[in-house]
Design a protein around this nucleic acid. Structure first.
Lengths: 228, 228
DNA sequence: TCGACTTTTCGAACGCGTTCTGAAATTAAC
DNA sequence: GTTAATTTCAGAACGCGTTCGAAAAGTCGA
C-alpha cells in the first residue's frame, strides 16, 4: 500500500513492488535465516520479482540495511533518561550502543557516509539527548557536537570490533601453539609477555559502559575548562 | 627467495610463487593503481600465475591486507616516546592512529579477529608502550589492558568513520534539499535544529587527539581509584 | 486512435572472492 | 626403476552485488 491516497497523477508503468514490501520481506528473511544469508537475489526471489528490480526501490544493499536499522530505530520509545546531565549523556549513549549491538547487520552500515544525518526523528532523539546533556552541563554547542562525535567513534569501534570477534567459538588461543601472542620477545615487550594469556581472558569482557564513563568524564571536563 | 638456506628437505612440487613475492607485487599494484583496484585476479595476473594459486600462500584477501599492514608496521621505528606515563600513552596511541590512518586499506582489516594478537613484535611495541604507561601510572596490569582496549575501540571507530566519510568530495550537504539533517522536528529536537548546518562544519574536524586526551584522562583516573 | 513520454521490470552480463577437483612436479620408499 | 606420497598449480564453476539495455505497461496530448 504505497500511496493509496494519491489519485495516481503520474504516468509510467504501475509498480508491482514497493519499498515497504521489500523491507518487510527482508525482515522476514533475516528473522528466518539470519542476516548473513540475506542476499539481494534471494530477497528478490522471496518477493517474486527479478533481482535487478530491487534497485529501483533501494540504492544498494547498504542502503537496504540502513533503512532496516532506521525502521527499527523508529519503533523503540526512549526510556526515561536521567535528569542529571552527565548521567543523561551516558544513558543515551548506552541506549544507542545496546540498540546497535542488538542488530548484527548494523556493523556493515555504521560507518556509511552521513549515517547520523540520515537517521529519522526517533533515533535522532538519542543524539539530541547527548548533545542536550553536554550543553546543560555547561558546554558550548560546538563542544557538545565534539562530545557526541567522540562518543560515536568509541561506540562504533566497540561494536565493530566485538561483532567481528564474536564469530569465533569461545576462548581458544589465537595462535595454534597455544600462546595468545605468537612467541613475542620478552626482552622488548616485558609487560605483554608478563600478561601472557591473561590478555585472552580480559579481552572478551564487556567494558563498554566503563570506558564510556571515562570518556564522558574527560570530555565534559574539557568542555567547562575551554568554555567561551 | 623464500628459504634459500634450507636445503630442501621436503617433498612435493617445488613452488614457483612465494608469499614475499605476492606481497611485493601487491605493494607495487597498490602504489600504481590505488588499493581499491587491487583484486586477487589482477594480482595473480601481475605475478603470472593462476588466481587460485594465491590461496596456497595467503588465507584470503583480508589476510593479504593484514600481512601488508604488518609488514609496514615492522618498518617504522618507534619515535622517542615521552617519559611521563600519561603522555606516553597518548603519544603511543596517536602513533598507532596516524600509522593506520595513512594506510586506507587498513579499514577493511582493523576489526578482524585477533588483529592485535597477530601483530609482529615491532607494531606490538606501541601496544606495549600503552600498557607500560598505564602500569607506570599506577594501574594494575588488568586495568592497563582495559585501558588499551578502550583506546583501541576509540581509535578504530575514528579511523573507520573518517575513512568512509572522506570519500565524498567536500562539505556539500548530506540531503539534496540543502539541510544537513533532513527536515527534523524542531519541537522534539531543539538543540539539533538550533545547530542546523553547523554540524556539517564541525563534523570533518580532526579531533582525534583531543578526544584521546579526554579518554586517557578518565581511564587512568579510574585506574588509580579502583587500584587493588 | 495513435504515437510520444515516463516509469517499472527483468534477463544478460561483468568482475569479484572463493571453493572444488584434478593435473603437474618433485622427493622418498621399495 | 617403478610406485607412492606430497606439495603446488590452475581451470571450471558458484554465488555474490551491481550495471546496462531493452521490453513492458501505463498516462497524456494530438
Amino acid at each position: 500500500m504505497p500511496q493509496v491516497n494519491a489519485p495516481r497523477l503520474k504516468a509510467g508503468r504501475p509498480p508491482t513492488t514497493s519499498r515497504a514490501q521489500i523491507l518487510a520481506a527482508a525482515r522476514g528473511l533475516i528473522d528466518r535465516n539470519g542476516w548473513e544469508r540475506l542476499t539481494i537475489r534471494k530477497l528478490a526471489a522471496e518477493i517474486g520479482v527479478g533481482a535487478t528490480t530491487l534497485y529501483h526501490h533501494v540504492q544498494d544493499k547498504e542502503d537496504l540495511l540502513f533503512l532496516l536499522i532506521n525502521e527499527y530505530g523508529e519503533q523503540f520509545s526512549h526510556p526515561g533518561l536521567p535528569e542529571e546531565p552527565q548521567e543523561r549523556v551516558i544513558a543515551a549513549a548506552a541506549t544507542i550502543h545496546d540498540a546497535l549491538a542488538a542488530w548484527p547487520w548494523a556493523a556493515d552500515v555504521l560507518t556509511t557516509d552521513g549515517f547520523i544525518a540520515r537517521l529519522g526523528d526517533s533515533p535522532l532523539g538519542l543524539v539530541e539527548a547527548v548533545v542536550a546533556g553536554a550543553i546543560d552541563y555547561g558546554c558550548t554547542p560546538d563542544h557538545a557536537v565534539y562530545v557526541f562525535r567522540s562518543i560515536w567513534y568509541y561506540t562504533v569501534g566497540e561494536i565493530l570490533v566485538r561483532s567481528h570477534t564474536a564469530r569465533r567459538g569461545g576462548g581458544e588461543a589465537a595462535t595454534p601453539d597455544g600462546a595468545f601472542f605468537g612467541n613475542i620477545d620478552a626482552e622488548k615487550l616485558p609487560h605483554l609477555a608478563a600478561l601472557g594469556d591473561r590478555w585472552a581472558v580480559l579481552a572478551p569482557r564487556d567494558t563498554y559502559v566503563d570506558g564510556l564513563r571515562a570518556l564522558v568524564d574527560g570530555l565534559l571536563a574539557q568542555g567547562v575548562r575551554t568554555k567561551s
